[in-house]
Amino acid sequence: MNTRVMIDVDHVTIRFNKSTEKIDNLKEYAIKLMKRELMFQEFLAVKDVSFQVKKGEAWGLIGKNGSGKSTLLKAVSGIMKPYMGSIAVNGSVAPLIELGAGFDGNMTARENIYLNGCVLGHTEKYMADHFDEIVDFAEIGDFLDSPIKNFSSGMTARLGFAIATMVRPEILIVDEILAVGDFKFREKCQERMNRMLSGGTTLLFVSHNIEEVKKLCDHAIWLEKGNAVMTGNAQDVCDEYLARG
């Protein structure tokens, strides 16, 4: 078993500005500045969390709404920078945070496959090589040249999942996405994720479905109001969470 550390989250704190009203224009800014009402209300979404994910492990992040799970995932994918601490990621990351976020409704599915692939950092040639594979998995063959805005949410999700998982990334980050789509497609996704896991992909998984976490993950971390309450074996953490949470 290879024990290379893939994700090293080291005492990470992530800070937000939680001011009561959002000032997003110059006029208000100037008025507030003159009234001396400008303030920065600090809000820590994640507080001093540390964990290490080794190659091939599957980690589940559990906790209530607003406990900082998604924020932590965003920090690992590089979308957000931690305020304190550091995050080191070794390997290619495929974030599956809300499927189809990068789609442009006015473009056809064909164009969106290329666009979305490039957003994930692939080259055009690579996308052309894997084009058929994506279309097959998403089962959208007949709608290739219709604009995405006419797609059902299930179809969009299928396409998003197909593009994101086509790569066999070293690290897969999944945030609460399998809730969409019919059960057959969910099974298909599960199967693909299982296959990727046995192929050595590292998984970071956020879900409110504890059963799913138990089934997919071997480790888990329980977050509560930004603090890591418990880290360790998925079974233990999940049981504890159900008992106490």
Binding site: D104, N106, L115, C118, G121, E124
Partner: peptide, 20 residues
């Protein structure tokens, strides 16, 4: 350089959508 294809896709999208 790594993201040059994305740049190209975005430009093509803008131009295409403008005239579609």
């Amino acid at each position: 350089w790594y993201y040059k294809d994305l740049l190209k896709q975005l430009v093509v999208r803008d131009v295409k959508l403008k005239y579609r």
